[in-house]
Nucleic acid binder design. Structure first.
Length: 444
RNA sequence: GCGAGAUUAGCUCAGUUGGUUAGAGCGUCCGGUUGUGGUCCGGAAGGUCAAGGGUUCAAACCCCUUAUCUCGCCCCA
């Protein structure tokens, strides 16, 4: 600590090898389920014109009002801070849909993306200034079956990661923008003359984001709300029918959900279906994922009116749940062979031996320093090598090498030329880490 | 952005009512007679006690400021 002059910026973390395995595993699960469902991967810039977020997400949302990471391009004297680091992925993908003319593609366009997002918030557990999301978008078509399907894919991903049973999927329909406008007006009317009974925080909310009062934790507010108009009363028949159909489709798919009439989301662009994945114990705090329909977003960003639907999951929060559930992320970082060496001639021969082993797909590590054999063996043990190949001056002379089984503690002397073949056979070809053309093209 | 609590070795933590050279376990490195790991034994390295200022003869310990982390609030991934 004292040595460390620099640290990670506030709210950011180094992802060390151990944790990185979780990220890789989650990405794998996401890719797998997305490909099955016909989604294609997209990557957009990490920053965009700030208006894209301001208009898309909503100027009076917390995300925009106080959490946007503005990028100041101080090299140009004017127009600095015209960009912002993305606080989520949806707005960027919609921008891309418009810019790249994806309306020419068969609709709906189904895309997924994995990447880091940024929010200038006070850090806490599961809340960081740089965090990672996996994100699915279905753009260009409205149909209740699409809503059900994207939820189903999200369910599958969480199930694959073995945390689905730690979560509940809360679902609601928030109607159309007009529905909500009317409702907000009615809600404000209702509270006229009652402001004095509201806690200060909620009095503010009445101005800025009245719909948020619904899930206020203040007891006084909740008592007042008992007689207040509910969103439900303002949702039009079409939306209600749509919601009913979504639920029917979810039932058909065997997807579990919890109907939550007070679920609203913090981003302005949502309409109709909204859903969130909550911790089964702690509820709405630190949602692991969420999404919904955004039929006006593309138009807001300057495109033709085009419906859309999305889901985003938080990687760090997913990892937290995996750890809580005791889920291990499998990895392929194990060391198969450790090569120990004594003497300059042996060392030289080891270089090509190591290289050859690696080319054959054997995870090989060598101690090429001048350490004692004891130290080298200790290293082999610490790295968990299955076998150690030992080449000393005597073996160089006789053209042999010692092969030691670390678990059994037994060793034998074999011909140097046979070493690679022998090791490959012992490990079994199915355990070798070789490239095939398919793997080569696989995204990382 | 608001409120509260923390910060001592790479990690997890001791450190008495302020009193000489700051402690443990784990980890790391090196050894325990010729070239062999895990266990065991021995040794070493590693700290301006988060940073800066103040009080005091004397500060890891008391006070102030800042930074970071954690927990609430707000909000969300």
């Amino acid at each position: 600590m004292a040595e460390a002059k620099y640290r990670t910026p506030k709210g950011t973390n180094d992802v060390l090898p151990e944790d990185h395995q979780y990220y890789t595993y989650i990405k794998k699960a996401v890719r797998h389920r997305c490909r099955q469902a016909g989604f294609k991967r997209i990557e957009t810039p990490t920053f965009e014109k700030r208006e894209i977020f301001e208009r898309g997400i909503g100027e009076h949302t917390d995300i925009v009002e106080k959490e946007l990471f503005l990028v100041s391009s101080h090299h140009s004297e004017e127009g600095s801070e015209e960009y912002a680091l993305r606080p989520e992925l949806t707005a960027s993908i919609c921008r891309s849909y418009i810019e790249q003319g994806m309306k020419q593609l068969p609709q709906p366009v189904e895309l997924y993306s994995i990447g880091s997002c940024f929010r200038h918030d006070r850090p806490q557990k599961g809340r960081y200034r740089e965090f990672h999301q996996f994100d699915l978008e279905v753009i260009g078509l409205t149909d209740a079956s699409l809503d059900a399907q994207i939820i189903h894919v999200a369910n599958k991903i969480f199930a694959d990661l073995r945390i689905r049973d730690r979560l509940t999927m809360q679902i609601n329909n928030v109607g159309t923008a007009d529905n909500r406008k009317e409702y907000i007006a009615a809600l404000k009317d209702f509270f006229i003359g009652k402001e004095r009974n509201l806690p200060e925080l909620d009095r503010k909310r009445l101005d800025t984001n009245p719909i948020r009062l619904l899930d206020s934790k203040e007891e006084d507010t909740q008592i007042l709300l008992k007689n207040a108009p509910t969103l439900d009363q303002f949702i039009d028949e079409d939306s209600k029918a749509y919601h009913k159909t979504v639920l029917e489709y979810l039932d058909e798919l065997g997807a579990e959900y919890v109907e939550n009439p007070s679920l609203v989301r913090g981003l302005d662009y949502y309409n109709q279906t909204v859903f969130e994945y909550w911790d089964i114990d702690t509820g709405g705090k630190n949602a692991v994922g969420g999404g919904g329909r955004y039929d006006s977003l593309i138009e807001l960003l300057g495109g033709q009116p085009t419906p859309g639907l999305g889901f985003a999951g938080g990687m760090e929060r997913t990892i937290w749940h995996m750890k809580q559930a005791g889920v291990q992320a499998p990895h392929k970082d194990q060391i198969d062979i450790f090569v120990a060496q004594l003497g300059p001639k042996a060392k030289k021969k080891c270089l090509s031996l190591i290289s050859e082993l690696r080319d054959q797909g054997v995870h090989t590590l060598g101690a090429l320093g001048e350490a004692s054999l004891k130290s080298q063996m200790r290293l082999a043990d610490k790295f968990g090598a299955k076998y150690t190949l030992l080449l000393g001056q005597m073996e160089v002379k006789t053209g042999t090498i010692i092969l030691r089984d670390m678990a059994l503690g037994k060793q034998e002397e074999i011909k140097f030329e046979d070493a690679v073949k022998k090791v490959v056979k012992l490990l079994g070809p199915e355990n070798l880490d070789t490239y095939t053309l398919n793997d080569h093209f696989e995204e990382k």
